[in-house]
Protein backbone atom coordinates (compact mmCIF):
# COMPACT_ATOMS: atom_id res chain seq x y z
CA UNK A 1 0.00 0.00 0.00
CA UNK A 2 2.86 2.32 0.92
CA UNK A 3 4.34 2.32 -2.54
CA UNK A 4 1.00 3.19 -4.11
CA UNK A 5 0.68 6.09 -1.69
CA UNK A 6 4.10 7.39 -2.64
CA UNK A 7 3.25 7.10 -6.33
CA UNK A 8 0.17 9.17 -5.64
CA UNK A 9 2.32 11.67 -3.73
CA UNK A 10 4.73 12.13 -6.60
CA UNK A 11 1.88 12.56 -9.02
CA UNK A 12 0.37 15.31 -6.90
CA UNK A 13 3.62 17.22 -7.15
CA UNK A 14 3.98 16.62 -10.86
CA UNK A 15 0.46 17.79 -11.50
CA UNK A 16 1.27 21.14 -9.96
CA UNK A 17 3.91 21.65 -12.59
CA UNK A 18 1.33 21.61 -15.36
CA UNK A 19 -0.10 24.93 -14.41
CA UNK A 20 -1.22 25.72 -17.90
CA UNK A 21 -3.04 22.44 -18.34
CA UNK A 22 -5.06 22.84 -15.15
CA UNK A 23 -5.78 26.49 -15.86
CA UNK A 24 -6.80 25.66 -19.39
CA UNK A 25 -9.19 22.97 -18.24
CA UNK A 26 -10.66 25.19 -15.56
CA UNK A 27 -11.37 27.82 -18.18
CA UNK A 28 -12.86 25.25 -20.46
CA UNK A 29 -15.03 23.93 -17.65
CA UNK A 30 -16.26 27.43 -17.02
CA UNK A 31 -17.05 28.00 -20.68
CA UNK A 32 -18.85 24.70 -20.98
CA UNK A 33 -21.04 25.47 -18.01
CA UNK A 34 -21.58 28.95 -19.36
CA UNK A 35 -22.76 27.64 -22.74
CA UNK A 36 -25.22 25.32 -21.04
CA UNK A 37 -26.35 28.01 -18.69
CA UNK A 38 -27.07 30.18 -21.73
CA UNK A 39 -28.83 27.37 -23.52
CA UNK A 40 -31.04 26.34 -20.61
CA UNK A 41 -31.85 29.94 -19.68
CA UNK A 42 -33.08 30.44 -23.21
CA UNK A 43 -35.18 27.29 -23.11
CA UNK A 44 -36.76 27.60 -19.65
CA UNK A 45 -39.45 30.11 -18.85
CA UNK A 46 -40.33 29.39 -15.25
CA UNK A 47 -41.53 25.87 -16.02
CA UNK A 48 -40.26 22.37 -15.32
CA UNK A 49 -39.01 20.07 -18.04
CA UNK A 50 -38.95 16.31 -17.46
CA UNK A 51 -39.19 16.98 -13.73
CA UNK A 52 -36.21 19.39 -13.63
CA UNK A 53 -36.35 23.08 -12.82
CA UNK A 54 -33.87 25.52 -14.35
CA UNK A 55 -31.86 25.59 -11.12
CA UNK A 56 -31.71 21.81 -11.00
CA UNK A 57 -30.78 21.60 -14.67
CA UNK A 58 -27.81 23.94 -14.29
CA UNK A 59 -26.58 22.15 -11.18
CA UNK A 60 -27.05 18.89 -13.05
CA UNK A 61 -24.69 19.96 -15.84
CA UNK A 62 -22.19 21.34 -13.30
CA UNK A 63 -22.12 17.95 -11.62
CA UNK A 64 -21.93 15.69 -14.67
CA UNK A 65 -19.17 17.86 -16.07
CA UNK A 66 -17.40 17.62 -12.74
CA UNK A 67 -17.33 13.85 -13.11
CA UNK A 68 -16.08 14.09 -16.67
CA UNK A 69 -13.37 16.64 -15.84
CA UNK A 70 -12.14 14.69 -12.83
CA UNK A 71 -12.32 11.22 -14.17
CA UNK A 72 -8.82 10.91 -15.52
CA UNK A 73 -9.97 9.74 -18.95
CA UNK A 74 -6.46 10.38 -20.22
CA UNK A 75 -5.67 6.93 -18.88
CA UNK A 76 -7.02 5.67 -22.21
CA UNK A 77 -4.42 7.57 -24.18
CA UNK A 78 -1.69 6.58 -21.78
CA UNK A 79 -2.49 2.87 -21.93
CA UNK A 80 -2.77 3.06 -25.67
CA UNK A 81 0.63 4.71 -25.89
CA UNK A 82 2.37 2.42 -23.44
CA UNK A 83 1.13 -0.70 -25.16
CA UNK A 84 1.87 0.48 -28.69
CA UNK A 85 5.28 1.92 -27.92
CA UNK A 86 6.21 -1.17 -25.91
CA UNK A 87 6.97 0.93 -22.84
CA UNK A 88 4.66 -1.30 -20.87
CA UNK A 89 7.29 -4.04 -20.98
CA UNK A 90 9.62 -1.96 -18.83
CA UNK A 91 6.91 -1.11 -16.34
CA UNK A 92 6.26 -4.78 -15.84
CA UNK A 93 9.71 -5.24 -14.38
CA UNK A 94 8.82 -3.10 -11.39
CA UNK A 95 7.55 -4.72 -8.20
CA UNK A 96 3.99 -3.48 -8.28
CA UNK A 97 0.63 -4.32 -9.62
CA UNK A 98 0.56 -2.34 -12.82
CA UNK A 99 -3.15 -1.61 -12.75
CA UNK A 100 -3.24 -0.31 -9.21
CA UNK A 101 -0.05 1.61 -9.77
CA UNK A 102 -1.82 3.47 -12.57
CA UNK A 103 -4.84 4.02 -10.36
CA UNK A 104 -2.68 5.46 -7.59
CA UNK A 105 -0.98 7.66 -10.13
CA UNK A 106 -4.35 8.93 -11.40
CA UNK A 107 -5.58 9.65 -7.87
CA UNK A 108 -2.44 11.64 -7.21
CA UNK A 109 -2.51 13.64 -10.42
CA UNK A 110 -6.22 14.22 -9.94
CA UNK A 111 -6.14 15.35 -6.33
CA UNK A 112 -5.24 18.91 -7.13
CA UNK A 113 -7.45 19.39 -10.15
CA UNK A 114 -10.36 17.56 -8.53
CA UNK A 115 -10.36 19.95 -5.62
CA UNK A 116 -10.16 22.89 -7.98
CA UNK A 117 -13.02 21.56 -10.11
CA UNK A 118 -15.17 20.74 -7.09
CA UNK A 119 -14.83 24.29 -5.84
CA UNK A 120 -15.52 25.54 -9.37
CA UNK A 121 -18.58 23.34 -9.77
CA UNK A 122 -20.16 24.49 -6.52
CA UNK A 123 -19.22 28.09 -7.15
CA UNK A 124 -20.61 28.12 -10.68
CA UNK A 125 -23.75 26.34 -9.47
CA UNK A 126 -24.36 29.16 -6.99
CA UNK A 127 -23.44 31.92 -9.42
CA UNK A 128 -25.46 30.67 -12.38
CA UNK A 129 -28.35 28.97 -10.61
CA UNK A 130 -28.38 29.78 -6.88
CA UNK A 131 -29.03 27.28 -4.10
CA UNK A 132 -30.97 24.08 -4.78
CA UNK A 133 -34.27 24.08 -2.94
CA UNK A 134 -34.55 21.45 -0.27
CA UNK A 135 -30.89 20.44 -0.39
CA UNK A 136 -30.07 18.32 2.65
CA UNK A 137 -26.49 18.61 3.99
CA UNK A 138 -26.85 15.15 5.53
CA UNK A 139 -26.84 13.73 2.00
CA UNK A 140 -23.27 14.92 1.32
CA UNK A 141 -21.45 11.74 2.48
CA UNK A 142 -23.57 9.55 0.22
CA UNK A 143 -23.09 11.95 -2.67
CA UNK A 144 -19.31 11.85 -2.18
CA UNK A 145 -19.36 8.05 -2.17
CA UNK A 146 -21.35 8.08 -5.37
CA UNK A 147 -18.86 10.44 -7.04
CA UNK A 148 -15.89 8.33 -5.96
CA UNK A 149 -17.52 5.21 -7.36
CA UNK A 150 -18.29 7.03 -10.62
CA UNK A 151 -14.75 8.18 -11.09
CA UNK A 152 -13.32 4.78 -10.19
CA UNK A 153 -15.48 2.82 -12.58
CA UNK A 154 -14.91 5.30 -15.37
CA UNK A 155 -11.17 5.04 -14.79
CA UNK A 156 -11.07 1.27 -15.02
CA UNK A 157 -13.38 1.16 -18.02
CA UNK A 158 -11.20 3.70 -19.86
CA UNK A 159 -8.15 1.71 -18.85
CA UNK A 160 -9.61 -1.53 -20.20
CA UNK A 161 -10.43 0.20 -23.46
CA UNK A 162 -6.88 1.57 -23.67
CA UNK A 163 -5.46 -1.88 -23.00
CA UNK A 164 -7.41 -3.19 -25.98
CA UNK A 165 -4.40 -1.86 -27.88
CA UNK A 166 -2.93 -5.28 -27.14
CA UNK A 167 -5.50 -6.79 -29.48
CA UNK A 168 -6.40 -4.10 -31.97
CA UNK A 169 -4.25 -1.84 -34.09
CA UNK A 170 -7.01 0.75 -33.78
CA UNK A 171 -8.74 0.79 -30.41
CA UNK A 172 -9.83 4.41 -30.36
CA UNK A 173 -13.31 3.68 -31.80
CA UNK A 174 -14.16 1.75 -28.64
CA UNK A 175 -13.20 4.74 -26.59
CA UNK A 176 -15.15 7.09 -28.83
CA UNK A 177 -18.23 4.97 -28.60
CA UNK A 178 -17.90 4.74 -24.84
CA UNK A 179 -17.47 8.49 -24.52
CA UNK A 180 -20.50 9.07 -26.67
CA UNK A 181 -22.60 6.68 -24.64
CA UNK A 182 -21.65 8.64 -21.53
CA UNK A 183 -22.51 11.74 -23.43
CA UNK A 184 -25.96 10.85 -24.68
CA UNK A 185 -27.06 8.76 -21.71
CA UNK A 186 -26.71 11.24 -18.92
CA UNK A 187 -24.00 13.81 -19.38
CA UNK A 188 -25.89 16.62 -21.09
CA UNK A 189 -29.43 15.49 -20.53
CA UNK A 190 -30.84 13.61 -17.57
CA UNK A 191 -32.19 10.26 -18.68
CA UNK A 192 -35.66 11.47 -17.70
CA UNK A 193 -35.64 13.33 -21.03
CA UNK A 194 -35.50 10.04 -22.88
CA UNK A 195 -38.47 7.77 -23.58
CA UNK A 196 -39.71 5.91 -20.48
CA UNK A 197 -38.77 2.45 -21.73
CA UNK A 198 -35.09 3.40 -22.22
CA UNK A 199 -34.91 4.86 -18.69
CA UNK A 200 -35.73 1.44 -17.26
CA UNK A 201 -32.69 -0.06 -18.96
CA UNK A 202 -30.32 2.88 -18.64
CA UNK A 203 -30.46 3.17 -14.89
CA UNK A 204 -28.71 -0.17 -14.66
CA UNK A 205 -25.98 0.56 -17.21
CA UNK A 206 -22.58 2.08 -16.36
CA UNK A 207 -22.95 5.05 -18.72
CA UNK A 208 -25.84 6.64 -16.88
CA UNK A 209 -24.57 5.49 -13.50
CA UNK A 210 -21.35 7.45 -14.04
CA UNK A 211 -22.93 10.79 -14.91
CA UNK A 212 -26.65 10.81 -14.19
CA UNK A 213 -26.24 8.72 -11.01
CA UNK A 214 -24.34 11.15 -8.78
CA UNK A 215 -25.61 14.32 -10.49
CA UNK A 216 -29.23 13.49 -9.87
CA UNK A 217 -28.37 12.67 -6.29
CA UNK A 218 -27.16 16.25 -5.90
CA UNK A 219 -30.12 17.99 -7.50
CA UNK A 220 -32.92 15.79 -6.20
CA UNK A 221 -31.79 13.66 -3.28
CA UNK A 222 -33.76 10.84 -1.73
CA UNK A 223 -32.59 7.91 0.36
CA UNK A 224 -34.49 5.37 -1.75
CA UNK A 225 -32.72 6.67 -4.83
CA UNK A 226 -29.28 6.69 -3.14
CA UNK A 227 -29.69 3.13 -1.90
CA UNK A 228 -30.68 1.99 -5.35
CA UNK A 229 -27.85 3.75 -7.20
CA UNK A 230 -24.86 3.26 -4.91
CA UNK A 231 -24.97 -0.56 -4.81
CA UNK A 232 -25.33 -0.61 -8.59
CA UNK A 233 -22.29 1.64 -8.93
CA UNK A 234 -20.30 -0.50 -6.51
CA UNK A 235 -21.14 -3.61 -8.50
CA UNK A 236 -20.01 -1.98 -11.75
CA UNK A 237 -16.86 -0.79 -10.02
CA UNK A 238 -15.91 -4.33 -9.06
CA UNK A 239 -16.74 -5.48 -12.55
CA UNK A 240 -14.62 -2.78 -14.19
CA UNK A 241 -11.59 -3.56 -12.00
CA UNK A 242 -11.90 -7.25 -12.87
CA UNK A 243 -12.31 -6.36 -16.52
CA UNK A 244 -9.13 -4.26 -16.50
CA UNK A 245 -7.21 -7.05 -14.78
CA UNK A 246 -8.49 -9.61 -17.26
CA UNK A 247 -7.71 -7.55 -20.35
CA UNK A 248 -4.30 -6.71 -18.93
CA UNK A 249 -3.20 -10.22 -17.97
CA UNK A 250 -4.38 -11.69 -21.28
CA UNK A 251 -2.75 -8.85 -23.19
CA UNK A 252 0.60 -9.15 -21.45
CA UNK A 253 0.81 -12.78 -22.48
CA UNK A 254 0.31 -11.64 -26.04
CA UNK A 255 3.26 -9.27 -25.73
CA UNK A 256 5.51 -12.14 -24.71
CA UNK A 257 4.42 -14.18 -27.70
CA UNK A 258 5.15 -11.35 -30.11
CA UNK A 259 8.38 -10.51 -28.37
CA UNK A 260 9.88 -13.95 -29.15
Amino acid sequence: MGKYLSIAGISIKNSLVYRASVTGRVVFYFVFIFVFFSLWSMIYSGNEIAGYSLVQMIWYVCMTELVVFCSGSEIFGRMNHEVKSGEIAYRLLRPWNYIFMQFADMLGSMAFSASVFTVMAVLLGFVFAGPIQGFNPASVPLIVISFVLSITMNFFICMSLGLLAFYFEENSPFYFIYQKLLFVFGMLLPIEFLPIWTQGILRYLPFSLITWGPARMVVNFSYEYAFEIIPMQAAWCVFSVLLAMFVFSRGVRKVNVHGG
Partner: peptide
Protein backbone atom coordinates in the same frame (compact mmCIF):
# COMPACT_ATOMS: atom_id res chain seq x y z
CA UNK B 1 -12.84 2.44 -38.37
CA UNK B 2 -11.76 5.91 -37.36
CA UNK B 3 -13.98 7.60 -39.88
CA UNK B 4 -16.88 5.61 -38.51
CA UNK B 5 -15.92 6.57 -34.94
CA UNK B 6 -15.94 10.24 -35.77
CA UNK B 7 -19.26 10.08 -37.56
CA UNK B 8 -20.71 8.31 -34.54
CA UNK B 9 -19.32 10.98 -32.26
CA UNK B 10 -21.12 13.66 -34.19
CA UNK B 11 -24.27 11.64 -34.45
CA UNK B 12 -24.52 11.56 -30.67
CA UNK B 13 -24.88 15.33 -30.66
CA UNK B 14 -27.59 15.13 -33.25
CA UNK B 15 -29.29 12.68 -30.91
CA UNK B 16 -29.02 15.20 -28.07
CA UNK B 17 -30.66 17.92 -30.13
CA UNK B 18 -33.30 15.59 -31.43
CA UNK B 19 -34.25 14.50 -27.92
CA UNK B 20 -34.29 18.09 -26.72
CA UNK B 21 -36.40 19.50 -29.56
CA UNK B 22 -38.70 16.51 -29.30
CA UNK B 23 -39.18 17.02 -25.57
Amino acid sequence: VQVFGMALNNASFAFFWWVLFDR
